[in-house]
Design a protein around this nucleic acid. Sequence first.
DNA 1: CGCTTGAGTGAGAACGTTCTCAATCGCTGA
DNA 2: TCAGCGATTGAGAACGTTCTCACTCAAGCG
Lengths: 367, 367
Amino acid sequence: MSGSARRSMPSIEVVAKEAGVSTATAGRALGGYGSVSGKSREAVLAAAERLGYRANSLARSMITGLTHTLGVLVPDIENPFFSRALRGIADVAHERGWEVLLVNTDEDLSLERKALGVLTERRVDGLVVAPTDTADRDALQDVIDAGIPVVLLDRRVPGLDADTVGIDNRAAAKDATERLLALGHRSIALLTGGDEKLRPRLARPGLRGVERLGATTVGARAAGYRDALVEQGIEPRPELVSAEGFRREDAAAATTRLLGLPDPPTAILALDSLLALGVLQALRRLGRRCPADVSLVGFDDADWAEAISPPLSVVAQPVYELGAEAGRLLLDRVQGTDRRPVHRRLPTRFVERESARSVRTPAGTSP
Amino acid sequence: MSGSARRSMPSIEVVAKEAGVSTATAGRALGGYGSVSGKSREAVLAAAERLGYRANSLARSMITGLTHTLGVLVPDIENPFFSRALRGIADVAHERGWEVLLVNTDEDLSLERKALGVLTERRVDGLVVAPTDTADRDALQDVIDAGIPVVLLDRRVPGLDADTVGIDNRAAAKDATERLLALGHRSIALLTGGDEKLRPRLARPGLRGVERLGATTVGARAAGYRDALVEQGIEPRPELVSAEGFRREDAAAATTRLLGLPDPPTAILALDSLLALGVLQALRRLGRRCPADVSLVGFDDADWAEAISPPLSVVAQPVYELGAEAGRLLLDRVQGTDRRPVHRRLPTRFVERESARSVRTPAGTSP
DNA sequence: CGCTTGAGTGAGAACGTTCTCAATCGCTGA
DNA sequence: TCAGCGATTGAGAACGTTCTCACTCAAGCG
């Protein structure tokens, strides 16, 4: 555990001695608090410069009770949604003098709990969490009870005493579905991505009761999809709703299955950009053209969405701003504002490109 | 600065009192060091459980000299290359019990220097840096001299006493160029991305002297491109080498310019995936087809590369492994292995898809 | 001149751990 | 029985800061 001759950096005491003052005065000069004469300050700063002094944040944090560190828990930093949101958090934090400790939870509840414990022991001043599961309410509440404020990002946990930042998933999905309906589509498939727990509920006739899954992103979006259909007097068909996994290949397989149905969909709504990519891949393999044969709308405006053929129509979330707002809410609370939890719903934007168009006349009725 | 009634967590002293032992014994029971009787251990653990005790890592780090924290400095976490590499670093770190403190440098030298200072004050145990500029040698050397080991990721800084992890950029670019040459292309454009400092050197006749830029990623790749051409007896044409910016629109503009040349390229090598995306976008706008009219090869195997039309041929880097290896090298050093700096060059892989094909017969000579 | 005031200073406590060291305890072997 | 030994224990130092408090000193005021 030793080995590398870790050079110990000079402490404030050494600097003080070198400058011919007490450690208290040296501390004041270097830390910018209390009052110090110009002469002392100069002597201290010069000594510090000479010795290559670097303050020890750990010792400072012990006293002040602030680590100037924010913990960020996300399922997977490789997901562009989270890396962009993290960028927003980090920019706000950095601007106000905070640093970011990042942990991937891999959608693993036990990893998340463990990380929560570690970050508590590290005495982070606050936490931005995109929780894996609503089931983690107690672990999160423990953290809050320990005095560490928490902001929930993208996902909500019912009954938790924390700020939340996200979009109105139900309204956004409803809007996207309505746009497909307005183009004449009547048979619209929904690719939700996951997961085992969701599948049985999504399989119910007419998607009844999906709003009970409202706390999850997928549940809320599925409810919006159903709302739009029902308002148009269309009975949602469970076989058009897929929950076969979040990976690209899962979406490709689902697409292949959907298009093999007796009454196949003429449009697909994919709840995430990776899923949309899988749809496109499957369409190409099947020799179906988009949007001529099948219309497609995705979620999240990935940087490739505009550049591919056809450019993809998407529901765009203000991802960076979501992160930035989470950072702001958290730091406001860290810096002392004590208030009731707030819930920010930022507006989404439908970006119309070329992947969705009017339903084509069914082959059987064309001349 | 106060306000929120930050509940102070119980210290080890309180736990010890509750358990009826000394703080030393409580520390041993909770920290798992020294020797404690079963009876004492149980009493302490029960007391800790009852009081909701959480160790204070700061105090521990003060004593042990280890923060179990790795600093990671990247230009931009939104860049998929860095978010994937970070994933590799974080996974290795986590597995060995370390956490990751992340800072975006935004390719800004002064931000990078400042971050280096902050992370030093936080006493991180080691640092993975993708340095903005080779000019930061001194600031990095200062960190190393202070006893904090550094591993350079993706980019190198000549004369720095640090491990490096990356690919052989020159060989990878040469290989990609050779493949285009083998397909019959003789007029191959190179999209380098940046930047102002590079442009004059890339503009020299025959790209003479680009290998002097060997320390930069772009410079090394440009050298590989030139090597391949020269070996085939082809004089590199500076007007086919673009360094007009790293954004997608920059690449689109460059593509438009290149295809407007009197003797336009029949193939394009883009040194980064975002640039390739810009090329595709421009081609679509110009009504040129890929690969029928123009062949394209990119760098980095983005998740969309396989799913778009046409699937993009790329030079794939082992990005995750790059990060993981950086993490391993760093932790090995942190945990005591004192050795001379090593330089890991991981192999790249050319992924042949459909965006590059044989040069078409020039229009003038076709029947 | 005596009193107040405020800036400047230093001694030492405090933060919450781990480490050092000496003391005690219970056994073992002679 | 007793020296010896290892396991167990507690007191107190140490880590490097900031904070508290009391003290000095010079200036201002009546």
